[in-house]
Simulated scan of single mutants.
Amino acid sequence: MSPQISTDAPGTSASDQLTGRVVLVTGAASGIGRAIALAAAQAGARVVVSDLQPEGEQTARAIVDAGGEAFFVPCDVADAQAVEHLVAETVNHFGQLDVLVNNAGISGGAQLAHQLEVDAWDRVIAVNLRGPFLCARAALPHLIAARGAIVNIASTYGLIGAPLAAAYCASKGGLINLTRQLAVDYGPQQVRVNAVCPGYIDTDMGGGRARLGPAGQAAAQTRREANAARQPLGRQAQAVEVARVVVFLASGAASFMTGSVVTVDGGCTATFNHGS
């Protein structure tokens, strides 16, 4: 017997795609995570903003100031106890959890594998792969009840080999296949699990660029823009361009999508030249 298709999914206009839903976004203090939290709120969701950085409070405040509902819970997603607390706070505050967006991640720097410290490798894997697992593990009982969704923020570096990024590539490749595996296990419970792979996005991941000083920042930005210019669309994206795709995947508009890996990369993985 085929499962029944829900007829009360949220609408698909920009203002009501997530109406009535509770969305938890990790790594939402800045960059793509902040853009996702703001876009989810604009789409009608009540949002739980989480991050290890206290600036997550500013994201929540921006949502509330715009007339939405949000609150901030600090969390290290690599810490199982902290993640359990995060999900418990979400459900205690809003009474439900409908969508988990696993966005928190770190780059781990740029080194050859034989020069990479084991502790540095472990930290990247802990945040980028263990973290989404822990968050999914804690959230899934609630998502099953809600027939909800998980959106994992992976990377084009999980699809290709990229220079000087052994730990990052491994973690994001693992996250992509974790996405597929969870889709297989939880599809029968009507929980959808998809991944988004951003390409060159105009953000400062982990604040690394900010620590370089003015000259270093300018040089780093110039390199990124030059690499992005080689892609078919010829530019970097703004974080909101990723956020719109995440809102779509989280909403009823994507009701028959699960196990999908969606690139938001300006065409970079469609070409041979990925930059450097």
Rank of each mutant, 00 (worst) to 15 (best):
I160D: 09
E241Q: 09
A82L: 11
R147I: 02
S50N: 12
C169F: 03
A136C: 15
A110C: 11
G199P: 05
P188A: 05
S2Y: 02
S6N: 07
V247E: 10
A165W: 01
F248P: 11
S2W: 03
T12M: 01
V118C: 11
F248G: 13
Q189I: 04
L86M: 12
K172Y: 07
H274S: 11
C197F: 06
G20D: 11
A60S: 07
I32M: 12
G174E: 01
S107W: 00
H274A: 10
G95I: 02
T90N: 04
Q115C: 02
N92K: 03
F72L: 09
N227I: 00
D185N: 13
N227W: 04
N152G: 13
S50G: 13
V245G: 06
D122G: 14
A39M: 09
P188N: 03
A239I: 03
A183L: 03
L182M: 13
G174Q: 05
V191Y: 04
F133C: 11
V22F: 00
M1V: 06
C169K: 03
D204E: 03
M1H: 06
R123C: 06
T179V: 15
A45S: 13
A166W: 01
A82C: 11
I32C: 01
D79I: 01
A237Y: 06
L140R: 07
A219H: 13
D119Q: 14
Q96N: 12
A110G: 10
Y186K: 10
Q53K: 12
L178T: 01
D79E: 01
G68E: 09
D265H: 09
A270W: 01
A250F: 04
R209A: 15
L129I: 05
A243N: 10
G174N: 02
L100C: 06
A39D: 11
I36D: 06
A62S: 14
M257W: 08
D51N: 15
D8E: 09
G266L: 03
G206I: 08
I125D: 11
Y157C: 12
A43Q: 04
Q217Y: 10
G208D: 06
L129P: 03
E69Y: 00
A146Y: 09
G206F: 08
A9W: 01
V49Y: 11
N273M: 05
G208F: 02
L52I: 14
S107M: 00
A139S: 14
V262W: 03
P54S: 07
E84H: 08
A37R: 12
A104K: 08
A154T: 05
E89L: 08
D98I: 00
Y168R: 15
L116K: 04
G266H: 00
A60M: 06
L100T: 02
Q190C: 10
A243D: 10
A229L: 10
Q42A: 15
N103K: 04
Q189A: 15
R46G: 15
F248T: 10
V118R: 12
C135T: 11
R21F: 02
V99W: 09
N92Q: 01
A66M: 09
